[in-house]
Simulated assay, not measured.
Amino acid sequence: MKKTAIAIALTSATAFANAQTVEVKLPTFYGKMNVTQEFVQQENDGSYSRLQSNASRLGLKGDFALNDELTAFYQAEYQIDVDGDADDAKALTMRNTFVGAKGSFGKVQAGLFDTALKAAQGKVDQFNDLPGDIKNIVTNSENREANAVRYSTPSLSGLVLTVDHINAEEEGAHNGLSLSAVYSRDAIYAAVAHDSEVEGEGVSVTRVVGQVSLADLTLGALWETEDDNGESADGFMVSAALKATSKVALKAQLASSDIKAEGSEQMSLGADYKLAKNAKTFVFATMGENDAEDSGVQVYGAGVEYKF
C-alpha cells in the first residue's frame, strides 16, 4: 500500500514537472494627454480664451494566443477631460472598445470603434483633434460607431481591405456599411473608402486619401463627397509637414467644403517642438469662415502632448 502511494506521488510530481508553462500577458496601459491654451477671435462678436483638452485618453489593450493559429485581442479606451470641464456623469467617455481574433485569415472584431471610412484618413490631417481638424469643416463622417462588426484582410503586398457592418438594432431601420481599401508601403499611403447609411438613412459618403513622404517633406490630400437623399456636396483638404530640424516640424493645411456649411474655407499653420520621444510642445493658428454673415473665426493656441 505504501509502495503504491509512493509510486502515485512520484508519477504526479513527474507529470507536474513536465507540464508546459502557460504565459498570461498583462494588458498594456497607455494614454495621451493633449492640452492647449487657446485664444478665440470671432468676427463682429466677442473674443475669449479657453483651456482645451483635445481627445486626451486612457486605455488598456492586449492579446493572447488561443492556439497556434489564432490570437485573441482586446482594447478598452476612454476619453478624459484634462481641463476639468466634464461633469461627473461624463468624466469618462467611451472611445474605441472592442474584442476580436486574428490569424492568417485576417482579423475580426466587434464593439465600438472608428469606422473604416474615418480610419482611412490615416495621418493626412496635420491638425487632428485641434480646431483645424477636418471634422470641423470638411466632413460629417468622422464617426465612431457602436454595435459594429469588422473584418479586415491580411496585408496583400501593402493592401488591406476592411468592411464594417453596423447593426441598427431597431426593426425597420437600415444597417450601416463602411468599406475601405488602404495601401501603405514605404513612403506612400493611399486609401478609398465608402459609407452607406452610417451618417443617416439615405446618406452615402465616398472618401479618397493620398499621402507621400519625400525626404523631410510630407504632402497629403483628402477629397470627400456626400449624397444626402439626393442633395450632393463635396470638400477637400491639402496638407504639408516639413521636418525643419531633428526637433522642429512645420505644418500647414488648407481646406474647403460645402458639406458642413456652404462655402466653408479654412487655413491652419503650426509648428511642433519635440521634447522627447513621446512628448512635444506646439503652437498653431487656424482661420476659417463660410458663406454665413459674420462667420469668420480665428483661433491661436499653444499646447503640450504627452504619450505613454
Score class of each variant (00 low, 15 high):
N136H: 15
V138A: 08
V138F: 07
V138W: 09
N140A: 11
S141D: 10
R144T: 08
E145N: 08
E145K: 05
A146F: 13
N147E: 07
A148W: 11
V149E: 06
V149Q: 04
V149L: 14
S152W: 10
T153D: 03
T153I: 06
P154Q: 14
P154M: 12
P154K: 14
L156D: 03
L156W: 12
S157E: 14
V160Y: 06
V160H: 04
L161K: 01
T162R: 00
T162N: 02
V163S: 01
V163L: 08
I166K: 05
E169P: 04
E169K: 09
E171Y: 02
H174L: 09
H174S: 13
N175D: 14
L177E: 10
L177G: 08
S178M: 02
A181I: 13
A181W: 15
A181Q: 14
A181N: 13
Y183R: 08
Y183V: 09
S184G: 12
S184T: 11
S184N: 13
D186V: 00
I188E: 09
I188S: 11
Y189C: 06
Y189P: 00
Y189N: 04
A190D: 00
V192C: 03
V192I: 13
V192G: 11
A193F: 06
A193G: 02
A193M: 07
H194D: 06
D195F: 11
D195Y: 11
D195V: 07
S196R: 15
E197T: 14
E197P: 07
E197M: 03
E197V: 03
E199H: 04
G202Q: 08
V205A: 15
V205K: 05
Q211P: 07
Q211R: 02
V212W: 12
A215T: 01
A215L: 03
D216L: 09
L217V: 01
G220E: 04
G220R: 02
W223T: 03
E224W: 01
E224C: 00
E226V: 15
E226D: 13
E226I: 09
E226A: 12
E226T: 15
D227V: 04
D228I: 04
N229D: 12
E231Y: 05
D234F: 06
F236Q: 07
